[in-house]
Design a protein around this nucleic acid. Sequence first.
DNA 1: CGTTGAGTTGACCATCGTCAACAGGAGTGG
DNA 2: CCACTCCTGTTGACGATGGTCAACTCAACG
Lengths: 247, 247
Amino acid sequence: MMSCEQARGADTPSPCPHARSREGCVDCKVRLLSICAALDAGELCELESLSHPACFEPRTTLFLQDEPAEIVYNVTDGVVRLYRLLPDGRRQIVGFALPGDFLGLSMADRFGFSADAVTRVTTCRFPREVFSAFVDTKPHLLRRLHEFASHELSLAQDQMVLLGRRTAEEKVASFLMSLRDRWARVTGASVTVPLPMGRQDIADFLGLTIETVSRTLTRLARERALLIVPDGVRLLDLPRLERLAVA
Amino acid sequence: MMSCEQARGADTPSPCPHARSREGCVDCKVRLLSICAALDAGELCELESLSHPACFEPRTTLFLQDEPAEIVYNVTDGVVRLYRLLPDGRRQIVGFALPGDFLGLSMADRFGFSADAVTRVTTCRFPREVFSAFVDTKPHLLRRLHEFASHELSLAQDQMVLLGRRTAEEKVASFLMSLRDRWARVTGASVTVPLPMGRQDIADFLGLTIETVSRTLTRLARERALLIVPDGVRLLDLPRLERLAVA
DNA sequence: CGTTGAGTTGACCATCGTCAACAGGAGTGG
DNA sequence: CCACTCCTGTTGACGATGGTCAACTCAACG
């Protein structure tokens, strides 16, 4: 499980050619999804002056659990996996960050999980101390951060129900449906759900093995509930999947 | 699983004779553990004027998932179980609230889970709108709420690792160790861990069945890792339990 | 002294994990 | 261009962990 070597992306972020020059925060396509939606034009401009764009190649690390959280991240494009490891190497993915998600919500001095890029990822980064000071002058931004954290907590509780009380088939169906809903906010509704993460990532998110994930997807495909396409699935029998994914 | 009838406590909170008359917030024994520690004497007094003490008998309901969150709660004594149900009755307990814990951290307009009293529980209650308005005038209190929520999120992620990637024996050991640590903050350190919740509650928290919890505890007791006492366990072989509970 | 409900224990079994083999695509070098 | 490796994903055979079902103990309570 997880034997791959991973390049460290954070120390040498790719120059990410057009990350800043191309557009400002005002034109940012995830602004309304992200914490930034709490800011007016002037505040946005202030925040922009504090931001450092950075992008990460697939399979590079943004940060590691327990390391000092010098930097917080706003994900503007791509998918990031967030995970914790047990000493013997077992891994639990605690979430996937999509465009608009914020890493470092807690503003604690250390990261509570590790994060690495699944796809090519672009981010706005902020030195944590600077960002924290900025937040202290903007109570409505703190409110927004708190709403985001509360939403994360609710998702975490959903995931507890899934991990503790659902069968493999229900887990896979729930995962697909909730990922579909999250993509809908970013890219618009679609019955085709992109799965940029590998089967091992899905397994480590659902508390299953890669074989069980593979078998379950195959079976759902054989029974015409979905169609496996390159890097994703197309949902066919929505009522059935909905039924499996309830609550 | 969970077939017991439950009285509704919230509509008819017991008078709770000495809840307010006995002591004010200044003398509250969980003040320093709770969100109230963020307040100075004057603010505490303000908040006190907004609070309504209430207590709940064992097995009564504080509130139900998805119902409008008219009230938020500060638990001052006792243990509350927080849970979500699947339509078919499967239950996942997402946490146990101990003295000092706050229910309604998210300040969302509906509760994300149901809550009922395990022991006799005493609380300070606040109308949510009133509390929310109070928070809006006290950014440092919002900070504290946010820290509490962030801590909850971190605990939720611990629980995801536990549910997704640990064996029954590891789950039980982790549960006991982390409960011991939480009690330590409230009642002081001890190798005797009170377990006021029943086996079914523990099972529904750990993603196991009551039989597996019972068997696992019995085995750990037979192997002298712990001693089962009325309403709790005494931890004997701490190194071994620590090893099972790592990370 | 019977009833009830929680907890324990045993026998059996199913779901999912383990181990192994195989398929197919991407990249590499002769 | 082809052979080769590497990696991811799929599939099958088998087994173990933990679930299911049932019986039993015991304390609390009337």
